[in-house]
Design a protein around this nucleic acid. Structure first.
Lengths: 340, 340
DNA sequence: GTCTATAATGACAGCGCTACCATAGCCCCT
DNA sequence: AGGGGCTATGGTAGCGCTGTCATTATAGAC
């Protein structure tokens, strides 16, 4: 008696039904649908017709189990509301198109414990690769990744030693280059407006690089405000107002990112402060919206799309985890803009 | 001879290895990990210890196949760079937390053919439910959804008949209400700035509602510019400049959404046009960034988070597709702002 | 002390595919 | 005639779990 567990269960069309209808064996249908092995054209057409007639939808759970390979790539990003991560995902998608692979996306909310859960849960789908943001993971997460032997790409950051592959750019260096650039343009009294460093370690790295560059020019931040909580335009606006209320008179304020800097521009526009003429403003990321401002934001563009795409390209090109780690720098460029 | 297919294949820890180590049967381990059935506390601890020691990660492909249920929810959004969709995903995640379900996200790029592919590909994972944006699908996509018998939630829009469940608000009505509101505030010469309607049918519905409201007040658009391509701040900025260059003198411009309206505000700020005093601007969506402007954007807030959350809550509350369709209105609110 | 409920565990047969090997027919060499 | 190398197809045994039935201990009822 076949199918005793079918009772009462919604049951779809299976391979064997298609095979029966096309008068071939299951394996032949399977081969046709996966484009493997030699198949007579007449058979192919007959089977595809049967597939159409039955509305057959392959069961990837079964397929993945049988072939021990899910054709899945697990991706964990800290946030989707920070536009840089959707842009990374765009690069990932671009690299995945036509490969038969599919991304499964998790969002950690900048919380390592959630990231750990997501890693466990995504590994349960036996992905071919895992893509994470940054180098910080819980020890348990780290252990799972090591155990799994899947390829692991850590994105955005290249300032630490990766598990397997890192793709991104140096945030410390970017902060440092910002500082040198602005010092070179004649600014001397630096203010800093940032957001929560606990969650966003890369923002802190940029800050540290900036401070180091200032020190090399015998300068230091004259004022610094850090907002608790994530970056946002409103937070940047409030924080700049708070910084200026303290009475010191910076000639330039560096923001932890463009979202914050945008808020800074808005504060200036609302308070009658002329960006650059009265107070220079500098961001990080090079978001499109910053370049659409009446005065384009002076900032640094990071290559998010390229980062995502490069990571997937590399990982798919070499499926087994190689013996040694690799670091790929996708760089950044200064956007001069009109606010600094 | 067991495991003849193991040769050369990366092989993880399986249930049976954990079972052997804890000296129980596989099914007992399975029960413990799924919290079902009566289990002695001592056994549970022993098994969990064995799980920890081996670094066992369950294989969901096998689990899903055996239980014909993947604990997956397929989600297809048109875009991730338009911030409203990440916000919907936020609501979906919030509703999924603690349920054991996981979302698999696909991005269609506003392309129905891509949506169709994604539907096929997500259905292959035997999800418990599918969440889509809007009512427009290819006939083949529609057929697959009908065949699959999974629950289908169509989000954002409630202006058509759903397959199963629709959650969102009426875009026509929102456009209509915008028009009535602005007429009520004394505006008479309406301009419209929009983006591509082919891809974004909801934008067209809002436009049509607006035009209908104007007609009821014996008014009509005095000028209208539609950008080809997706909405963006830069597009809004360019389109408003183009509209004003045509020489007509609107007293208010309604934008297809906040991204476009933001560009409009930027154009005004750059061109010395005072928002509201010289030209009123009205958006749609109620994005945070619009409210952080020097003059908060006058707009309409749609409840994206609530939309995502409500859809999942409903779908999980009733797993079988019910006989009749349901429509849930998550509404919208006018944000008076300072630009109209 | 027997009988029935309940708690705790296990045996076994699939879930729907695909890897692996085998087979059959055919053509071309030597 | 025999052999080697194709092309096209099929049989079979899993992949690693879980649903469905047992089965055995243990407690409580009378």
């Amino acid at each position: 008696m076949v199918g005793k567990r079918l009772a009462g269960r919604r049951q779809g069309v299976t391979l064997s039904e298609v095979a029966r209808r096309a008068a071939v064996s299951e394996i032949t249908v399977s081969r046709i649908l996966r484009n493997t092995g030699p198949i007579a054209e007449a058979t192919r057409l007959r089977v595809l017709q049967a597939v159409r007639e039955t509305g057959y939808v392959p069961n990837r759970l079964a397929g993945g189990l049988a072939s021990s390979g899910s054709k899945l790539v697990g991706v964990i990003v800290p946030s989707l509301t920070n536009i840089v991560f959707p842009e990374v995902l765009g690069g990932i998608r671009a690299a995945l198109v036509g490969t038969g692979f599919q991304a499964v996306i998790g969002v950690s909310d900048y919380d390592l414990a959630i990231e750990e859960e997501l890693i466990a849960s995504l590994l349960a789908w036996r992905p071919e690769a895992m893509v994470l943001a940054g180098f910080e993971h819980t020890p348990a997460a780290r252990a799972m990744l090591d155990n799994s032997a899947v390829r692991v790409a850590e994105l955005m950051d290249i300032d630490s030693a990766p598990i397997d592959l890192a793709v991104g750019h140096s945030h410390w260096q970017a902060g440092h280059d910002s500082g040198r650039y602005l010092v070179g343009r004649g600014y001397r009294r630096f203010g800093y407006v940032g957001h929560d460093w606990m969650a966003d370690r890369r923002a802190k790295l940029r800050h540290d690089g900036l401070v180091a560059a200032l020190a090399e020019a015998s300068l230091a931040l004259v004022e610094s405000v850090r907002n608790v909580g994530p970056s946002s335009t409103q937070a940047g606006r409030d924080a700049l107002a708070a910084l200026l209320a303290r009475g010191s008179t910076p000639d330039v304020v560096v923001f932890s990112n463009d979202d914050m800097a945008l808020g800074g521009v808005f504060h200036c526009l609302g308070a009658g402060i002329r960006p650059k003429d009265d107070l220079a403003l500098f961001g990080f990321n090079g978001l499109d919206i910053g370049q659409a401002l009446p005065m384009p934001l002076s900032t640094m563009r990071s290559n998010r799309f390229l980062t995502g795409k490069t990571a997937i390209d590399r990982v798919l090109a070499q499926r087994e985890r190689p013996g040694k780690t690799e670091i790929i720098d996708t760089g950044y460029q200064i956007l001069p803009g009109a606010t600094a």
